[in-house]
Design a protein around this nucleic acid. Structure first.
Length: 541
RNA sequence: GCCGCCAUCGUCUAGAGGCCUAGGACGCCACCCUUUCAAGGUGGAGAUCGCGGGUUCGAAUCCCGCUGGCGGUACCA
């Protein structure tokens, strides 16, 4: 029999938890409710990569339990609202391949799914809490609150509202200083005892009630704070599993207080680990562009790689090919994540984002792609860099040569640029290490002769170029790898402008005879100039 | 300051009292392949399991304390 919570919610943490305190059994009192999870993003401008991790956990829970994923837009802060942010959220999830069932853009049985469209609901519940004595109005000015906190910190006291307004009418409060006519509604926390709850990722957590702040539930503009809206909506939308970042942990006792005051059973609440910078701080948009999920797209990371990377943080997939203990499968997709995912198995510690590892994963996925697919995906990156792939008939052939040499799509322009244009380069690169310009010129002249012969033969192919060049090298006594390397090096730089390229004959074949001969001729001019400076070629090279 | 969370190679991770001389992956180094760069293959360095006490025949694993890191501390989410 699976473990269930008091409300009959399947817990998705079978057997033991890594936290011993989380192993307590709950009696099954009610039939299991259908699993419903929600994504609660704020439309504040960009999609944070940490929210993507939460989204993946949500999606995995929904998939594993055959449940429903709901998107609810948390737009209760008018000041931070950014137009178009909601569309960006949908678009980002779509890019990642995460699917949802209920949302503002498609409706559902618990609509509306935008909190700004649910204001009366929150006001209603706030009134009820006030009537019950579980909440109260507060007319303290921001100034007064700030001074209060300052004094509390100086006195080494816990920072919390001092309840000056508790039990007062507006008229009574108005007579005192620090008054403002714009009132808020505060939640009344318990004076003593403690609040404990079990987070499936972290085990049982405890907070002392006397230290908890009377948080604002309803702002003076009539909008709810997250602390009210999240509870009302999660309950009304029948959410069974709440997953959110660890930064919410200190808010959870307040939420539980609202559930209690309203007489509702709380859902299972899990706090995922934070994504960290290399310096182990919380990831910041300012210093680390990858805080914004859009960065990954702009850099040419594939959605499969991003999903796989995050999946590595929340699921361990055993390697079926090598079933030895501790050996993991590193490459997997959403299906494997959903199959092996377990809330209790997510490590609770913060995760440093390792872009090197993502690069490796992305390279793996790029190499597994067809050239055709890669051609389509790389084209926008080339276009952004000013290269029109339609002007290069050999685009696909060139890309095939760079296929296993790029880790991000954004590297395609740099990798392919010399196929598009004759590029400037330092002529000194034409001279092999340990040789003179005169010697390089000699090697290049031989190479040009070979190329011309091949071009005239009408068979400008990899195998012919290979045969002729090897025969030529043999004839010139270039029998060692190093000596052949000098010859090939001159041709490589002369025809591409770089020292590192795909295999030389493949590259020459794709470039075509006329381009190669033109560039080698330019290279010849460079070497003549250099040789003139150096003086006559040295003997016996 | 107050509250809370966290702690196994640089990073991600396996580990659930003996299978651990701590396994895998990225990164790093070397070699092989090789005309360069990659890719691929093989091997290597890298963790006294944060520290200190306990419990136990036996502790990375259980308990206590400490330290460090991080998060929260808003009429933001």
């Amino acid at each position: 029999m699976p473990l269930t919570s008091p409300v009959g919610v399947p817990l998705l943490w079978t057997g033991r938890s890594r936290r011993s305190s989380a192993t307590e059994h709950h009696a099954m009192t009610v039939p299991p409710a259908p699993v419903r999870v929600r994504l609660a993003p704020s439309p504040t401008g960009f999609v944070h990569i940490g929210n993507v991790l939460v989204a993946l956990v949500d999606a995995a829970i929904a998939r594993q339990a055959g449940g429903t994923l709901v998107i609810r837009i948390e737009d209760t802060d008018q000041k931070r609202f950014v137009d178009g942010a909601e569309e960006l959220i949908y678009e980002s999830l779509h890019w990642l391949g995460i699917e949802w069932q209920e949302a503002p853009d498609r409706g559902g049985p618990f609509a509306p799914y935008r909190q700004s469209a649910r204001l009366p609901l929150y006001q209603e519940h706030a009134e009820r809490l006030i009537a019950q004595g579980d909440a109260y109005r507060c007319w303290c000015s921001p100034d007064r609150l700030e001074q209060m906190r300052f004094a509390q910190q100086a006195a080494k006291l816990p920072p919390k509202y001092d309840r000056r307004c508790l039990g007062m009418t507006e008229a009574e409060r108005k007579a005192l200083d620090g008054y403002t006519p714009d009132s808020v509604v505060r939640l009344r926390m318990h004076d003593s005892g403690s609040t404990t709850f079990t987070d499936p990722i972290r085990g049982t957590l405890a907070f002392e009630n006397g230290l908890l702040d009377d948080r604002v539930l309803l702002k003076s503009d009539g909008f709810p704070t997250y602390n009210l809206a999240v509870v009302v909506d999660d309950h009304l939308m029948r959410i069974t599993h709440v997953v959110r970042g660890e930064e919410w942990l200190p808010s959870t006792p307040a939420h539980l207080r609202v559930y209690e005051a309203l007489g509702w059973d709380p859902p299972l609440i899990a706090h995922t680990p934070l994504l960290l910078n290399a310096d182990r701080g919380k990831i910041s948009k300012r210093r680390h562009p990858w805080a914004n999920m859009q960065w990954f797209r702009d850099q040419g990371f594939l959605p499969e790689a991003v999903l796989n990377y995050l999946g590595n943080l929340i699921a361990f997939v055993p390697d079926t090919e090598n079933p030895a203990p501790g050996v993991a499968r590193e490459l997997f997709g959403f299906d494997e994540i959903a199959a092996h995912f377990n809330l209790a198995s997510i490590g609770p510690s913060g995760k440093v984002v390792d872009i090197d590892r993502l690069d490796w994963l992305n390279g793996q996925y790029i190499r597994r792609m067809s050239v055709e697919d890669l051609a389509v995906k790389a084209a926008p990156f080339l276009a952004a860099a000013g290269y029109d792939v339609n002007t290069l008939p050999t685009y696909r052939a060139a890309l095939a040569l760079e296929h296993e040499r790029i880790k991000r799509l954004s590297q395609a322009p740099q990798a392919l640029s010399f196929f598009f244009d004759d590029e400037e380069y330092d002529p000194a690169m034409l001279v092999p290490r340990g040789a003179t310009a005169g010697r390089a010129l000699e090697l290049l002249d031989g190479a040009i002769a070979v190329c011309q012969a091949v071009a005239e033969s009408g068979d400008w192919t990899v195998s012919t170029l290979d045969d002729r060049f090897r025969a030529h090298a043999e004839a010139r006594g270039l029998t060692t790898g190093k000596l052949r390397g000098q010859l090939f090096g001159v041709v490589r730089v002369g025809s591409t402008g770089r020292t590192a390229t795909p295999p030389l004959f493949d590259t020459l074949a794709v470039l075509g005879a006329s381009v190669v001969l033109r560039r080698l001729s330019v290279a010849r001019n460079h070497l003549e100039s250099l040789a003139a400076i150096d003086g006559p070629p040295a003997e016996g090279q």
